[in-house]
């Protein structure tokens, strides 16, 4: 029995195990409060809702492991969505064909990766702080988007696009499948490729990584370019889910992605962190939100609870807790 626990811990990491326990507890509590929670329909609706946050969180993940941050994720997603929408409109809106969809997606991915690559290049070659660079890029992209759309919505897409947001394959929500595919790719990218290895090393000590012969500058450009690429995927999904593009869509998710990442046990100073616990924490946040919704609370309460959750988890992980406890016992 302990062998299983040990092996699970080794395979998943300490964070993941704690989060799984948390998740099971939460399912139990919500099910007790409303049996509706443990139903196919409620899980299916989570499967449609969670992937957007999930993709954006993955976009945030590698920059944070590398000791940086990408505050421009939402607007990179918006701008990429805009690029996609522009191709759709050129190709006749709802009548656009498969070729146009592919072309639009390609353009969106290029735009997203480009926005990221520019940030990465400034961070790598100028040595400016990622918070500052991505903040500048965020403000720029938001402005660019508002300028292009004049603050309005763009809608009218072919049905196939809607299917990405609302359809299912073999009964599983398409967005969920998309998310699982990207998450798997990122798990492999970060844990098994040379680039992924370099991400962790850069986050741990960039100069030592350079001395060991890792291409640190190229790694930084790649990190942000790939982050932009995932943003573009998220942007297309967002467009498919809302059936429209508006600059500012999903803005509230920016800090939630950071929250999910910290919840997933990523080292705030960079250098450490795994994909799996972060994915778990995304589903925990989603369950919390859906569960609270089911028992009649609104989205805002779940926002607050998310924040409290993060604080609670950080307190539980804190070494200080033990010492405070001892202090209390002694006193």
């Amino acid at each position: 029995m302990t062998g299983i626990v040990e092996r699970a811990r080794a395979a998943l990491g300490r964070e993941a195990l704690g989060l799984i326990v948390l998740m099971v507890g939460m399912v139990a509590v919500f099910t007790a409060a409303n049996p509706q929670f443990l139903s196919v329909s409620s899980f299916s609706s989570m499967g449609y809702q969670a992937p957007l946050l999930g993709l954006l969180t993955i976009a945030m993940l590698a920059p944070m492991i590398s000791g940086g941050i990408n505050l421009a994720i939402i607007f990179t997603a918006n701008i990429s969505g805009l690029a996609f929408a522009w191709v759709m409109l050129k190709a006749g809106g709802p009548e656009a064909g498969a070729l146009a969809i592919v072309a639009g997606a390609a353009l969106a991915l290029i735009v997203g990766a480009l926005a990221g690559a520019i940030m990465g290049a400034i961070i790598a070659y100028v040595g400016a702080h990622p918070i500052l660079v991505s903040l500048g890029m965020m403000i720029f992209l938001r402005g660019l988007g508002e300028f292009l759309t004049k603050g309005g919505d763009i809608s009218g897409f072919p049905e196939a696009v809607g299917a990405l947001g609302h359809g299912d394959i073999l009964g599983l929500p398409t967005p969920l499948l998309l998310f699982i595919a990207v998450a798997l790719a990122w798990q492999i990218l970060l844990r098994r490729t040379r680039h992924g290895f370099a991400v962790y090393m850069v986050g741990s000590n960039i100069r030592a990584a350079e001395y060991a012969g890792l291409p640190t500058k190229r790694t930084l450009v790649m990190i942000y370019a790939l982050s932009g690429l995932v943003c573009a995927i998220a942007g297309i999904l967002m467009l498919a889910r809302f059936n429209s593009v508006r600059v500012g869509h999903g803005e509230a998710l920016l800090l939630v992605t950071v929250l999910a990442i910290f919840l997933g046990g990523i080292d705030p100073f960079g250098g450490h962190g795994k994909v799996f616990p972060v994915i778990l924490s995304i589903f925990i946040l989603q369950m919390l939100s859906s569960g609270l919704n089911l028992i009649g609370a609104n989205q805002h309460l779940s926002t607050a609870v998310w924040g409290m959750f993060l604080i609670a988890v950080m307190i539980l992980r804190s070494d200080r807790l033990a010492s405070l406890y001892h202090l209390f016992r002694k006193g």
Binding site: M201, S204, N205, R207, A208, A209, Y211, A212, G271, H272
Partner: peptide
């Protein structure tokens, strides 16, 4: 600082 990545 440079020879090893102490956290890794």
């Amino acid at each position: 600082q440079l020879g090893l990545l102490q956290k890794q």
